[in-house]
Computed example of a mutant assay.
Amino acid sequence: MARLLLILALVATAFWVYTIVDCAVQPAGRHRGVSKPAWMAIVILLPVLGGILWFLVGRGRAGGPAPRRAPDDDPEFLGGLSARARADQDERIRRLEEELAELDSEADDPSETRPAPKPDDDGPGDTPGKGDDDTRGQRGAVG
Rank of each mutant, 00 (worst) to 15 (best):
A38C: 13
E102H: 07
P27I: 00
P27G: 03
G29H: 03
A28H: 11
G63K: 08
H31C: 08
G33W: 00
L45K: 04
P119D: 07
L5F: 14
D134W: 04
R139P: 09
M1N: 05
D133V: 07
V142Y: 14
V11Q: 03
C23K: 03
W39N: 00
Q26C: 03
P65L: 11
E106I: 15
V21A: 15
R3F: 06
W16N: 06
L81D: 03
Q138D: 15
G140R: 02
S105W: 09
P37Q: 03
A70F: 06
G58D: 03
I93Q: 11
E99C: 09
L78R: 09
R114N: 10
L103E: 04
I7K: 05
I20F: 00
A41F: 04
L53G: 02
V25F: 02
R86N: 10
F55I: 09
A101C: 04
L100H: 14
K118C: 12
A14Q: 06
S35F: 02
R94L: 06
E112G: 07
P67D: 09
G123A: 06
R3W: 12
A9C: 15
R59S: 00
D22N: 12
G51P: 01
G129V: 04
R114C: 13
H31W: 06
P71Y: 06
V34A: 15
G125Y: 04
P27D: 10
G123L: 11
E102M: 08
G33T: 01
L56Q: 07
A87S: 08
P124V: 09
V17D: 00
G51M: 00
I52V: 10
R32V: 02
Q89S: 15
V57F: 05
A70S: 06
I93K: 14
R59N: 04
A101F: 00
V57Y: 08
M1W: 02
L56E: 05
P119H: 03
E91F: 09
S82Y: 13
E106V: 07
R95N: 11
L46Y: 00
D88G: 14
V48H: 07
A116M: 02
R139F: 01
G64C: 00
G123S: 12
D90A: 15
G140E: 05
T127A: 10
R59I: 01
R69Q: 13
R3Y: 00
V43Y: 01
H31I: 12
D74T: 04
